[in-house]
Design a protein around this nucleic acid. Structure first.
Length: 714
DNA sequence: GCGATCAGTT
DNA sequence: CACAACTGATCGC
């Protein structure tokens, strides 16, 4: 929850996302998105009075945010004071003090934030420097590098300060599965249930906030089932969304709410009141979107967890993970950074310890030489291409490559950020700090790959969380490795980036990233094991697994079939889908295909240019580049998709997928995995071109390999 | 009576 | 698991 006071140090005459106290005297207001914690004071009598006596005070926001706001009658009085600014369109605004006549101009640019429909970041440029207020955001790694308006030419703009969404700025939240991974997991779960009969329905236990729309859209598009919601008038002018939601209760997917909805659902009644259709009782399962995170080393990657007989928890996050935040900030490299949010158990000091080393102001102290201003520069297109190549060959650690790229491209690569960080840290003296920061950027990407070396430390953290799993965890751990490796090899990474570009909901949000981590729910030995084996690449397991898995699958299928009761409870409970799996699974295909199309403009059937713009408003714009990559990916995806088994099987399939994934990969993986858990094997780290080529060929041939999504991160 | 705040719940 | 919201109690204008 935002605790930002509303004003920037550099431009105190503006108020952003806060409208009370001193903000009542602002010369201009800005609203990043329509969540209540960013709207404090927005409908207070005091502000309302001020508007009535002012001709010049305006509230600036994205077109979508304006629409959502004005649909609520409580904010209707803003109607003549709201100015919708197109996303990614620099706009000059005159700030006039109505009492003194004093005037100042400032340029503001809205950038897609990927948090919820209409969410944006504000980039201000004026006399006191360039300042970026992120609002709440979820951007996958590398996305900042693709935002042209954050650049001047091929380099990142000189940004004085960043006011940052630090919701998950804690190493504990190192990794959060990508939107795609989460979406694919949910999709397959919903598919598996709703295909059992028309009386099998799913209730998505979403809170009232905006932000789940892309989930509804994707489920609707993939399954052909509209989502029941309480109201949809706020989307009346957003056909892309409107088309996929309904107020007709007789649909198989519900996201409706009721004060006692949990009780209702427990009683097999939907929040909208229905319990049966055509005299036939409904079979309801509930899926609660919630944030799941994984430490750097965590191995499990389940994005769906069964929490009861008919209840599930699905990974979902509106905010960037720790590694995403670090990637973002390390790319921007502002002079200063200010947290907008205090992480749950954290203090401002702690957050600053993590963030400051990534700022230029901090650097100076320790190392002047290392990244002077603007080291991170990366053109969009370039990035993509670079990434591809790099990933493929660069090496080993996808992560490094990235960093290297960022910094390296311009300044010489001599050393990456690490040195600096390390030094700084030392100076600063904070250890934890060091660990966090130093690695963060780097690790993020490669942790898995390369690092078998480094990580040890990190791992520890993860372990805490994972504890329960342990044994399984180990197995699982392999998985991550595999992934990482794979990614390292480059394929995944490429995919990732491309993915980022591609995802269908891109329009809405950019996602990307994939990782592997794993997590959760432990317990189910059998399932867990399976999971472990699942690792796409996981090697050794792979073989045995497949068998094993198959059994599980069957169990799952059973489960899914509904009653589950028997066999699966024990095994299934926890189950579920690992991110990896998903990646491999169709979803990735879809997303890519879709996204890609989206970019191309197929995306949604109706998308046309107009739509595109709208989507941008909603969340993000299709990233610029990706095309080439996208294509490649898409192909892969398609192939994969084809290869993919029947939809219903997905859950099962996914698991199996991982297992089946490819021997080839397994080999590597095995190495990698072994590296991970055990010592490092140098070999493992360094991908070899031959292998890479081999894998590529396979991909080209449509043969299964690793999942494509996995990519980005490492 | 309305609004803001806080605690508790989901 | 955290989040964004809602509910209800309390307090002040």
């Amino acid at each position: 929850m935002s605790r930002f006071g509303g004003r920037l140090r550099e431009y105190p005459q503006l108020s952003i996302d806060r409208f009370d106290y001193d903000n009542l005297r602002a010369r201009a207001y800005f609203l990043s998105h329509c969540h209540k914690d960013h709207m404090k004071g927005l409908r207070a009598p005091a502000l309302r009075r001020r508007l009535q006596s002012s001709l010049k005070v305006k509230l600036y926001c994205s077109p979508v945010t304006k629409e959502l706001l004005l649909t609520n009658s409580k904010y209707a009085f803003w109607e003549n004071h709201i100015v919708a600014l197109e996303v990614e369109t620099p706009t000059q605004i005159s700030l006039v003090d109505e009492t003194t006549g004093e005037k100042e101009d400032i340029e503001v640019t809205l950038l897609p934030a990927g948090h919820c429909p209409g969410s944006v970041m504000f980039l201000f440029q004026g006399e006191n420097g360039t300042v970026l207020y992120t609002g709440d955001f979820r951007l996958a790694k590398g996305e900042a590098a693709r935002m042209e308006l954050l650049h001047s030419g091929t380099s990142v703009k000189d940004i004085q300060s960043v006011y940052l969404d630090t919701t998950f700025c804690d190493p504990r939240f190192y990794h959060i599965p990508s939107r795609e991974e989460c979406l694919s997991g949910i999709l397959e779960l919903v598919r598996s249930w709703t295909t059992l009969s028309r009386y099998h329905v799913v209730w998505l236990n979403c809170k009232a906030a905006y932000g789940y729309e892309y989930l509804f859209i994707n489920l609707s598009e993939e399954l052909g089932i509209k989502v029941h919601v309480n109201k949809l008038d706020m989307f009346k002018n957003m056909p892309e969304i409107l088309y996929h939601i309904t107020t007709d209760r007789y649909t198989q997917i519900h996201a409706c709410r009721h004060p006692k909805d949990d009780d209702y659902v427990r009683g097999n009644r939907l929040p909208c009141g229905i319990t049966c259709q055509n005299g036939t009782p409904l079979h309801v399962i509930s899926i609660k979107p919630s944030t799941m995170w994984f430490g750097e080393r965590i191995k499990k990657t389940n994005v769906i967890v069964r929490t009861g007989e008919s209840t599930y928890r699905a990974c979902f996050s509106f905010h960037s993970s720790y590694s995403e935040i670090m990637d973002f900030l390390s790319y921007i490299r502002p002079v200063n950074v200010y947290p907008n949010v205090l992480p749950v158990g954290g203090s401002e000091d702690k957050v600053m310890e993590i963030l400051q080393p990534l700022c230029r102001s901090y650097k100076r102290n320790t190392e002047p030489r290392y990244k002077p201003l603007g080291t991170l520069k990366r053109a969009c297109k370039r990035n993509l291409s670079d990434t591809d190549e790099d990933e493929l060959f660069d090496t080993e650690l996808s992560a490094r490559p990235k960093i290297a790229k960022y910094q390296g491209e311009e300044s010489k690569p001599s050393q990456t950020a690490q040195p600096e960080n390390a030094e700084r840290n030392i100076n600063e003296s904070t250890e934890s700090y060091r660990a966090n920061t130093a690695y963060t950027s780097l690790k993020v990407d490669f942790v898995d790959c390369e690092e078998s070396n480094d990580d040890d430390d990190d791992d520890d953290d993860d372990d805490k969380e994972d504890d329960s799993e342990k044994n399984t965890a180990q197995v699982l751990s392999h998985e991550p490795d595999a992934n990482s490796i794979a990614s390292c090899n480059g394929i995944p990474s490429n995919q990732q980036e491309s993915n980022t570009d591609i995802p269908s909901w891109d329009m809405f949000f950019k996602c990307n990233k994939v990782d592997e981590s794993s997590e959760n729910e432990d317990n189910f030995p059998s399932s867990a094991d399976a999971g472990g084996s699942q690792s796409l690449f996981s090697d050794s397991d792979g073989v045995s697994d497949s068998t094993h898995i198959s059994s599980q699958n069957s169990s799952q299928s059973t489960h899914i079939s509904e009653q589950g009761s028997q066999g699966w409870d024990s095994q299934m409970d926890t189950v579920l889908i690992t991110s990896q799996e998903r990646n491999a699974a169709d979803f990735s295909c879809f997303s890519r295909g879709g996204s890609r199309t989206a970019l191309l403009s197929h995306d949604t059937p109706r998308d046309s240019q107009a739509d595109d713009s709208r989507w941008k408003l909603l969340g993000q714009n299709p990233s610029c580049a990706s095309d080439v990559i996208c294509d490649l990916k898409s192909e892969d995806c398609e192939k994969d998709a084809e290869a993919g088994t029947a939809p219903t099987q997905d859950l099962l399939v996914e698991i199996s997928d991982s297992s089946r994934t490819p021997d080839l990969e397994l080999k590597r993986d095995s190495q990698s995995s072994s590296d991970f858990e055990i010592p490092l094997t140098p070999d493992a780290e360094i991908p070899q071109r031959d292998k890479l080529h081999y894998l590529y060929k396979k991909l080209a041939a449509g043969e299964s390999i690793m999942r494509k999504n996995s990519p980005e991160k490492r």
